[in-house]
Amino acid sequence: MNKPLFVATLISLSALGLAGCAKKEAPPEPVRAVRTITVSGSETVAAHEYAAEIRARTESRLGFRVGGKLQSRSVNLGDSVRAGQLLAQLDGQDLRLGQDAARAALAAAQTNLDQASADYKRFKELRDQGFIGAAELERRETAMKTARAQLDQAKAQASVQGNQAGYASLVADAAGVVTAVEAEPGQVVGAGTPVVRLAHDGPRDAVFSVPEDRVGAVRQLLGKVDAITLQPWGTGDSVKATVREIAAAADPVTRTFLVKADLGKAAVRLGQTASVRVAGQAVAGVIRLPLTAVAEAKGQTVVWLLDRGQMAVRSQPVVVAGADGNTVVIRQGVKPGDEVVVAGTHMLTAGLKVKPFVEVASAAPKVIPASASMPAPVASN
């Protein structure tokens, strides 16, 4: 090979290699389209929502008035019962034996009184005839009074033992629904130990808890008819309720106050979950923004403001006062007249050039005549 030609070829290849290793310039970042709204102050009513449960106005934890072994339980969870219906039964053998003993003691006391009364009658006749002294008659009278007192005591004891035997049967005090079962057959229960929990038929309450900083506002609604609104879950109907009771002290664990609201004759189900909405006072000049306008940057809550002069965005820290549905209430950071980006905030950086988003109308579909869309028929031989 010709030496000058070889050198020229080598130089050309080296130049191409160096050109391939040269750093390429990054393409310019595209101008993003953003959707914005102009901030304006408005009047709003601050409202707070709490989760509530529908409960019976009266709910009793029923238990036996005597202790013993639970022999049977005739109701289960969710059963509807009527007043006087048998709920559970104890083994009452010992109670029946005690009742028999009390009856025997009563019979003995009655016999003793009859004997003392007959003795007193005979000794009174002897005293009238002068055969005995007054002291002897007084002793017979005292014995008769003692026997009568013993009879009264035996009667009372027999009544107590009869009641004890009757307490071996647990019956419903009122009509209602069994909401809990707390003892099973074969279990030995003490006097007063709950066996079943009964929610009485009748008025229903919405029970919910409020924090300490809101209990004062709720207390102002106490007794005001239809002061709060109840929204049962799974239904589109709202119910008005009246606050009738507020706990005097906070719960030691949750530090919240229990509130009960009367639902009147509302058609709600026992145990149903609902949302309670408590409206506050109207506040003027409140700034509300969509949830999509709020982002987080470096541990701060921010929104992105659009500078129309430079068509660029910058972040602005804000203080959020609360949420209401799909909007947030801004306490500090923006003012009426600011233009806030409400879509695509996660793609923005400080100083990024943007352009307003323009809604593009979808083109109408082209209609092809039926005559043009069908091919001409081909004649067959």
Rank of each mutant, 00 (worst) to 15 (best):
A8I: 11
L10I: 06
L13N: 10
L18D: 10
A19E: 15
C21S: 05
K23N: 12
P27W: 13
E29N: 12
A33E: 10
R35L: 05
S40G: 13
G41N: 06
A47F: 08
A52M: 14
R55G: 02
R57E: 13
S60G: 08
G78P: 06
L86V: 11
L97Q: 04
G98N: 09
G98I: 09
D100A: 05
R103A: 07
A105L: 07
L106G: 00
A108F: 00
A108E: 02
A109S: 11
D114W: 02
E125Q: 08
E136V: 13
D152S: 07
D152L: 00
K155D: 01
K155E: 00
N163T: 10
G166Y: 04
D173R: 12
V178H: 02
V178E: 01
T179K: 08
A183P: 10
Q187V: 11
V196F: 15
L198H: 12
L198Y: 12
A199P: 07
D201H: 05
V207F: 01
V215P: 14
L221C: 14
G223T: 06
G234I: 14
G234L: 09
V239T: 01
K240S: 01
K240N: 05
A241C: 14
R244Q: 13
R244Y: 00
A248I: 09
A249W: 03
D251R: 12
G264H: 04
L270I: 11
A279K: 09
G280M: 03
A282S: 11
L291R: 15
A295M: 12
V303A: 10
W304T: 01
L305K: 11
R308D: 07
R308V: 15
T327H: 10
R331K: 07
G333R: 03
V341G: 00
A343N: 10
G344S: 05
L348V: 06
T349R: 00
L352I: 03
V354S: 02
I368Q: 11
P369I: 09
V378L: 04
S380A: 09
